[in-house]
């Protein structure tokens, strides 16, 4: 993949006949310019997302009625000659009709059956945008942003392997306890999807011995108990018998072992 193709991909375009995910990743690994560009686009999405939703203040209503009153007064004093008013009205009617047509078209399109290729593509694009946002937020510097990335992951398809893998990386390596904790919870939907459940379960089993923070250990233990994951029993037994482990964690591991029986 060359830089041009990589850029197309960053912007959400597709290149026919290419194994895009891997090639793209490989290209990013080798090309610093594209890597920067990719993270810049990620940051752009993110800042777009950060724009606050403007909310009307209570005064808007008041001001509207004031304006309406003033307009009526103006109307009463100046009566526009009919001849002058005509061309403007025609334009207004035409614009309204055009808007109606567009609106109907959109409405029709939205209600159209799901097999239409453009719509399928649109849906895929939305999915890949969500994936992009989740992945890029989870790699930000600030823990608050990474937490947002973790919450975004609830919006991707539970079969999304890339997002699942990023969550696993976060559980195992994120420097912030709270982010790791949130990522453990966010793995739950992936254990319910046929495409990812085995991988997700194994990831949870493998994550437990890597954790040293009690609150995250307990979250993982609870998760394994909920999954009735017997393959985790040896690790749970090790925790129970390790005197260096926090007593709360050991009790929890004991409880989980009981629950699995």
């Amino acid at each position: 993949m060359n830089c041009e193709q990589a850029k197309t991909q960053m912007l959400g375009g597709t290149i026919p006949g290419e194994n895009q995910g891997e090639e793209f990743a490989a290209h990013l690994a080798s090309c610093e310019t594209c890597r920067n560009e990719s993270s810049r686009i990620g940051a752009l999405w993110q800042s777009l997302d950060l724009l606050p939703v403007e909310e009307p203040s209570g005064k808007v209503r008041e001001r509207f009625y004031e304006m309406l009153g003033a307009y009526r007064q103006g109307q009463a004093s100046v009566t526009m000659p009919v001849k002058q008013a005509w061309p403007r009205m025609i334009w207004q009617v035409a614009a309204a009709a055009a808007l109606l047509a567009v609106g109907l078209g959109i409405g029709y399109g939205v209600h159209e059956d799901r097999s239409r290729p453009e719509l399928v593509q649109l849906r895929e694009e939305v999915a890949s945008m969500r994936q992009l946002v989740a992945l890029s937020l989870m790699q930000q510097q600030s823990a608050s942003d990474r937490l947002r990335g973790v919450s975004w992951s609830y919006q991707v398809e539970p079969s999304d392997e890339e997002v699942m893998k990023q969550l696993v990386t976060t559980v195992n390596h994120d420097p912030n306890v709270n982010v790791r904790l949130a990522a453990v919870d966010a793995l739950r939907p992936f254990t319910g999807s046929p495409a990812t459940h085995l991988m997700a379960r194994n990831a949870v089993i493998e994550a437990l011995p890597k954790q040293t923070t009690p609150i995250v250990q307990v979250a993982l233990i609870d998760f394994l108990a909920e999954l009735k994951e017997r393959n985790a029993a040896p690790e749970l037994r090790r925790l129970v018998s390790d005197p260096d482990i926090d007593s709360g964690v050991r009790k929890r591991a004991e409880w989980a072992l009981e629950r699995m029986q």
């Binding site: 608050s144 942003d145 947002r148 919450s151 982010v179 904790l181 609150i215 307990v218 926090d246």
Partner: peptide, 12 residues
Amino acid sequence: APDKSMSFSTFN
């Protein structure tokens, strides 16, 4: 801050 995720946790 609008749109900031927050998290508070303690074990004991």
